[in-house]
Amino acid sequence: MSRYLLLSKKTGQLGNRLTVFAHCLAAARERGFRLLNPSFCEYAPFFTGPSGSLWRMDEPRASRQGIPMAERQLGYALARVAWQSAKLLRHASLGTIAMARARNEVPLDLRDVLDAAGPRCRLLILQGYHFRHHGWYRRHDAFIRTFLQPAQPWRAEGDAAVAELRRACAVVVGVHIRHGDYRQHLGGRFFFPVSTYVRFMTEIRRALAPRTVAFLVCSNAVHADDDFAGFVWRRGPGHLVSDLQALSRCDFIVGPPSSFSSWAAYHGGVPVLRVEDAQRAIDLEDFQVDPTPHPLY
C-alpha cells in the first residue's frame, strides 16, 4: 500500500518553498513515500518536474502540461482541509495518519519525523519550513537538481543575461539586493542601503583584480541606472525564476541571508557570501559552496 508525504501549507516565498520541497523530496525517495506538494502551486509551472503534476510531485509527469492555476489553488485548499481534518481523524486512524509541524527556526530532522510517524502510517502531513535532512539530500542530489531546474523559457532568459556579461568581462558576480519585505523582516536586520552593496561591489572588484568583473544585480526593488555608475553591470532578466537561474550561472554571489540566493548558489554550485553585518569587509575566502540547500534562516 502506498505511503504519502503531504506538504500542506505555503511557507514564505519561492526560496523557502524550494528548500523545504527539496529536503522533503529527498526524504520521500529515501523512505519510499510519494510526495504530495500542492503548496508549491503558483510556482510549479516554472520548474521542469512539478510543471506536469497537480498533487504528486516526486517524478516528472509530462502528460499534464498546462494545468489551470484554478485547479492548483483548489488542490492547495484541499491540503489545508486535510491538515485541519487530520487533527481529529488521526486519533481514530490506528496510526495510519500522522502530523508534524515545524514551529520555529530550529530545523526538525526528517529522519526523526518519519520515524515518529511509525510503520503503520500511510499519510504524514507536514506544516512548516524547517524540515531538513542533509544526509538524505546528498544521496538524491542529482535527481532533485534536475527535477527542480527552471523550465523554459525562464532558464534560457537567465542563461542569456549572464552570457551577455561574460562577453564583456572575465568574472560575473551576482548581487542579490533584498529590499521590499526585508524592511520589516527580522526588524530590518538585513535591509542594507544601496550604498552598502556598492561598497561590496567595489571590494569584490578590487579583490578579483586584475581580472575584469561584471555584476548581475537582482533585486525585488527598483533601482536607478546611476546607482551603480562606474561598474560593468546589468539587471537580472526581471522574472523571479529567470533571475534565480541567472544568479545560479554567476561565478560568485553576494547578498544578505536569503533562501532565494542560497538556492541559486546551491543549484549552480556557486560560492556565496551571506552578509549578516553591513559593516564587514569582503574577503573572497569567505565565499562558500553549499552541497545542499542550506539557508542561514
Rank of each mutant, 00 (worst) to 15 (best):
R189V: 06
F191H: 09
H133Y: 09
V194E: 15
D112T: 10
L165M: 03
L110Y: 15
A117R: 09
R132Y: 12
Y182Q: 05
A163N: 10
C121M: 08
R132M: 10
V171F: 11
H130N: 07
D181N: 11
V175T: 12
R132K: 11
Q149V: 10
H176C: 05
D141F: 13
V113C: 07
P193D: 02
W154T: 06
A168G: 00
V171H: 07
R145F: 10
A160H: 08
D115F: 12
A151E: 15
D141T: 11
H140M: 07
P153H: 14
D112M: 10
A163Y: 12
R183V: 05
R139Q: 15
I177M: 14
L186V: 03
H134P: 06
I177T: 02
R167S: 10
A168F: 09
L124R: 02
W154P: 06
F191V: 01
D109Y: 12
V173C: 12
H140P: 05
D181H: 10
G180V: 07
V172N: 00
P150T: 13
G118Q: 01
R145M: 09
V172I: 04
A161F: 13
A142Y: 11
R122E: 14
V172E: 03
R120T: 01
R166E: 05
D141L: 14
C169S: 13
R139S: 15
H133F: 07
D181K: 09
E164R: 14
V172T: 12
F192V: 01
V173P: 00
G128K: 03
G158T: 09
D112V: 08
H140G: 03
L186P: 00
L124F: 02
I144P: 01
L148G: 03
E157V: 03
R139E: 15
L124G: 01
R167K: 14
L165S: 02
D115V: 11
V173G: 02
V194H: 14
R183K: 06
R189I: 06
H130M: 07
L126F: 03
R189G: 04
F143L: 04
A156R: 15
R178T: 07
A160G: 08
D115R: 14
V173Y: 04
Y182I: 04
G158D: 12
L124E: 00
G188R: 01
I144C: 04
Y137C: 13
H176E: 02
A161D: 09
L123Y: 10
Y129T: 00
L126H: 01
R111P: 07
W136F: 15
V171I: 15
A160V: 08
Q184E: 13
